[in-house]
Design a binder for these strands. Structure first.
Lengths: 177, 177
DNA sequence: TCGCGCATGTAAGTTGTTACATGATTTA
DNA sequence: TAAATCATGTAACAACTTACATGCGCGA
């Protein structure tokens, strides 16, 4: 239901191509919304048909044309309308925790290995977020309101990763007896 | 892909009906795996057809028969096999954070309201987890290995909710100027 | 020359959501 | 007497994943 609105929000910030959106969803918005390029291209076509987006062809040589999308008036209206309705929480579905629930069938060593692997991923992700923080938000009070809100979204990623890492330490402490 | 394994893990702990599983996914396993009863009943039929589960009819009067499911040997093998393969991370898709990305189109008051709403939900959920913690895991070192792992899964829910609440405070502090 | 980044998609299949459907028992 | 709990599903649709598909430019 809300990939549509994630796309509207991203394009509201600035016009972009499917490729740009794919990259943004994977980097800057990694802690906000996840979507594959297949999903994005499909959704962009659909939304253009529905009149929420306007598409502009930008020819290039040696490469496929870029298709630059921006919000139409209807798109802005749809976004505003969605923004004013209360949102539910995303459902939790975590394979790692499922593993713990069935984990007495595995040997603790392989469980440790898996936790370590995830810990490294989380740490890497945290570092990416911290880099963004250092580059764009080192003086939060100087940042305009709009980007200040984006910073708060980033902060959620940061505090979540820190919590994940703390938890991983707790688990490792137990698994190492 | 892994509702199947969430069901296997849950039934590995003990045989259950679709109704039981629905309740467990909503309560004890709320921070682990989310699934609606429609999904669960569909999945149970499918898995029984595939030979992963055995079903036993338990007649009742005044109510529909209970259909009690348990793992077959093939089910145990499938679970063991899945447990020994590394798992990816669940994708992030959070409408609240999408709101922040488009949030300069909304007035700050309604944003505050929404954050407050979510804060209350998170607090409620944290309290539920803490109740479980107090009831079953007040002395973690006395708990057998298997349930100790479940406790660690619960701990993830607890540290995540605490992180969410801390973040909500941070956001509120900013929105109140 | 091999892989990565740029740039776009289609098709098939699986998973998840929403709406509809029934009916007795227990609790407030 | 109304609402919640117990107990099971079907059907239609929306969303997401995985596999397949193409092709140029650039840097190591």
């Amino acid at each position: 239901m809300s990939l549509k609105f994630a796309v509207l929000a991203a394009l509201h910030e600035q016009p972009a191509t499917g490729y740009d959106l794919t990259r943004n969803f994977r980097t800057r918005m990694a802690n906000v919304w996840n979507a594959s390029h297949q999903q994005i291209y499909r959704e962009l076509s659909k939304m253009t048909e529905e009149g929420l987006l306007a598409m502009e062809d930008v020819p290039q040589d040696g490469r496929p044309d870029r298709k630059l999308y921006r919000l139409s008036d209807a798109g802005i209206a749809a976004l505003e309308n969605w923004l004013s309705t209360p949102q539910g929480r995303p459902p939790t579905r975590d394979p790692l925790l499922v593993k713990l629930f069935g984990g007495d069938l595995v040997d603790p060593a392989s469980l440790r290995e898996e936790i370590e692997r995830q810990r490294r991923n989380w740490l890497e992700e945290l570092e990416r977020y911290r880099d963004i923080e250092a580059e764009y938000f080192s003086e939060p009070d100087q940042v305009p309101y709009r980007y200040r809100l984006q910073y708060l979204a980033l902060r959620k990623g940061i505090v979540s990763m820190e919590a994940n890492l703390a938890w991983a330490d707790e688990v490792m402490a137990f698994l190492e007896h």
